[in-house]
Design a protein around this nucleic acid. Structure first.
Lengths: 208, 208
DNA sequence: TACACTATGTAAGTCTCTCTTACATTAGGT
DNA sequence: ACCTAATGTAAGAGAGACTTACATAGTGTA
């Protein structure tokens, strides 16, 4: 989860790229301390400025976290997009790859889970909307529609099935991260689980 | 989400049931203010005691919240258990009712979502474990096994399928509460979605 | 009843953290 | 060179979590 580019160093009284540096610092602190419970002044010190400086760029701590949240969602959609290009359009493998890469991203960034899926994120979502045309969700809808056409399966609403699969991946990720899966079904591999669930679901769609 | 019984009033210097009263007060504050961002002193005042009194009963605020969290999970499993008894064992309806009641509970208590599925809850889980034999999850496993037997479907591991369905319900709830479903597929009814997803999954299992 | 002991409450204060205010410095345009 | 806007600093106000020293109440025991 690298947040954009590193800040351009410039040593003088004026930082030059403080806003961005603070986003990077906040991301690092979240990764290191396992959550958003770092002090604003820590992010400021890490960027080499005083405790009041961040408030020139962010109204409050939540606004900084919202920006970090956006960066995370951009990284998520980029990851998902990159992972699926290796798989041919219309194949089950592509659909499964979309789900797996989503699940993998969420699980590989546990420290960012609260930030991305907590209350704060709901507000931050509005700013990501403009990008929504290229988001992973639409890739999933397209992948499903292509699969249905190729397999001669009738699907009235691919977006609906996409939401089901998304819910799957999202739910599995949440349950895994909070230890519920390890508690109730220890040893279960979540990637296997996602693949078999998706497979069964597609089976159910293409059944008579 | 009513937390146990109301505290026994007793007016004197000693409260008599402060620990419980604080859990109730905290629950009310979460409901009213929409999260766990209430001040410890507010819960204390609501129970009619000073700001330091709660620390006689809870090590810190997290410990109070953990207790509220436990109450929530007890309420959840009770709700799920009560909802499913109306449906005959071995039917699809029972399986779907288990999922629907779970989804419904989570969605009807949005203010408690962070508390129940956030980082704090992971620690609070250990104390609920003793009850896990009667938790909703095992009802789901049993319902699936009964259905498979009745329908002559071979399922090697009902717990695995149960986890898939749980993930479904959990994911749909999370996506709905954070506005993602309304954003990408506006107007979609999540209960319909859960039912059709579960149906398709069972179709996939009972297919050739 | 008298006494000790423990549980539970209060008052007052400390510490940390967010955010504000008043002032200082710098970059860039004219 | 000078003005202005942007961006930084120093100092502190205020909120809220938690602590410490002390007060009060119930309970068991002689």
């Amino acid at each position: 989860m690298t947040a954009r580019e590193k800040p351009t160093d410039c040593g003088g009284y004026h930082h030059g790229d403080l806003r961005n540096a603070l986003v990077v610092a906040a991301s690092e602190l979240i990764e290191e301390r396992g959550g958003t419970d770092f002090a604003m002044v820590d992010a400021a010190r890490r960027a080499g400025v005083s405790s009041a400086a961040p408030y020139r760029h962010f109204k409050d701590k939540d606004e900084l976290l919202a920006e970090v949240c956006q960066v995370c969602f951009l990284a998520l959609s980029e990851t998902v997009e990159q992972q699926c290009v290796d798989y041919e359009t219309g194949t089950r493998a592509r659909i499964i790859a979309l789900g797996t890469s989503y699940l993998s991203f969420v699980i590989r960034h546990p420290k960012f889970y609260e930030l991305m899926w907590g209350d704060l994120a709901a507000g931050a979502m509005d700013m990501i909307e403009p990008r929504s045309q290229h988001t992973g969700f639409h890739l999933l809808v397209e992948a499903l529609a292509a699969w249905a056409e190729r397999e001669q399966v009738v699907i009235d609403d691919p977006a609906r099935i996409a939401t089901e699969l998304w819910g799957f991946a999202h739910g599995i990720a949440g349950l895994k991260l909070h230890g519920h899966i390890d508690h109730f079904t220890p040893g279960l591999d979540v990637y296997d689980l996602l693949e078999s669930a998706a497979t069964t679901l597609l089976d159910g769609l293409s059944c008579p």
